[in-house]
């Protein structure tokens, strides 16, 4: 079977990807996962290429993951972090884009608090752009690494029941995951307090729950979301303990899911809020494996985008 060719310049979101493209990334990631097992964890694929990590929002793990991925492909990596949006510095995004362009990087990995920023940069830059999270819009590599983790344990995506629990409204992880998982044939449930589940989300083809128990019942995969403590206004949530009482995952509630169900969390976790340590560190947890898969998925993304650049030059 011949795999479909990758022709995209950028990776901006799951929303624009076909099933074949998603599978191509997942399969490529699986082959890269093997690199991490080698004594010398480096392949020469991106030698002489430059990757700029452009993070307008604080993030350690995603940035480090992209950094390691680029280095394992032998690329040169530059990290550029800036607190707040470009507006804070009085520089428009267009100016930032022009500045980057004049340094002639091959790839820009962007994280920004505002939806659509990677797409804006992609329109203005000749280099490849990877979305590392834009507002509450998309976080495609997170959804892809979640998918490789699930495939690793379950051997498939189609037909699985996946429950995603937490602040659905403000989560880019949820949006990318819904798009990916429904496209690959999973049955997706979202659950959270009514103040944090936007009306209309069901049009994406998910079941909506406002109680944790029915969302967990018979699930193959349970994905707990990070409660963004810094983001919650007092009107969305009375207190953390109230949230935890209603939507926190503990060992007892976990028993509602299938016996072989796995637990995912995009991290960083608020232990004792959305998930107890007993579950987070328990036998069903694959949270640390997700982190490992993250490097492989990001290697795959950069590798495929490099192919497009090669073909164009």
């Amino acid at each position: 079977m011949t795999e479909p060719a990758w022709t995209r310049k950028d990776l901006l979101g799951i929303g624009e990807l076909s099933v074949a493209e998603i599978e191509l990334i997942l399969n490529t990631a699986e082959s890269f996962a093997e690199v991490a097992e080698r004594p010398v964890k480096k392949v020469p694929t991106l030698r002489g290429k430059t990757v700029v990590n452009l993070f307008f929002e604080p993030s350690t793990r995603t940035r480090v993951s992209f950094e390691i991925a680029a280095q394992r492909l032998s690329a040169d990596v530059v990290n550029f972090t800036s607190a707040g949006s470009s507006q804070v510095k009085g520089e428009t995004l267009a100016d930032t884009a022009k500045n980057i362009a004049s340094m002639a990087p091959d790839f820009v990995v962007v994280r920004h608090a505002h939806a659509g920023v990677p797409a804006m940069l992609a329109r203005q830059l000749e280099c490849g752009v990877v979305n590392a999270g834009d507002g509450a819009h998309e976080h495609p590599t997170q959804a892809l690494l979640d998918a490789t983790t699930i495939r690793l344990h379950k051997g498939r995506i189609a037909g699985l029941t996946v429950a995603m629990v937490g602040d659905i409204m403000h989560s880019r992880v949820v949006r990318s995951n819904i798009l990916l998982l429904t496209r690959l044939g999973a049955r997706v449930r979202v659950a959270g307090p009514r103040t944090m589940v936007p009306r209309g989300i069901e049009t994406l083809g998910v079941e909506v729950h406002h109680e944790l128990e029915p969302a967990l019942a018979g699930a193959d995969v349970v994905m707990m979301l990070r409660l963004q403590l810094e983001r919650q206004s007092r009107t969305l949530l009375p207190s953390l303990s109230e949230y935890s009482r209603l939507f926190g995952l503990d060992a007892e509630r976990m028993r509602l899911a299938k016996p072989d169900a796995i637990v995912l969390h995009p991290g960083p976790m608020n232990r004792g809020v959305e998930i107890t340590s007993e579950v987070a560190d328990g036998s069903q947890s694959v949270i640390l494996e997700q982190v490992g898969q993250g490097v492989a998925v990001r290697m795959a993304a950069l590798y495929l985008l490099a192919g497009t650049r090669e073909a164009r030059s």
């Binding site: 939806a115 507002g135 509450a136 819009h137 998309e138 409204m169 403000h170 989560s171 880019r172 949006r175 936007p198 009306r199 209309g200 989300i201 049009t203 994406l204």
Partner: peptide, 13 residues
Amino acid sequence: HEGVASACCGLPG
């Protein structure tokens, strides 16, 4: 506008 489009794209409504 807060509606299906904002729910799906994640912009505040």
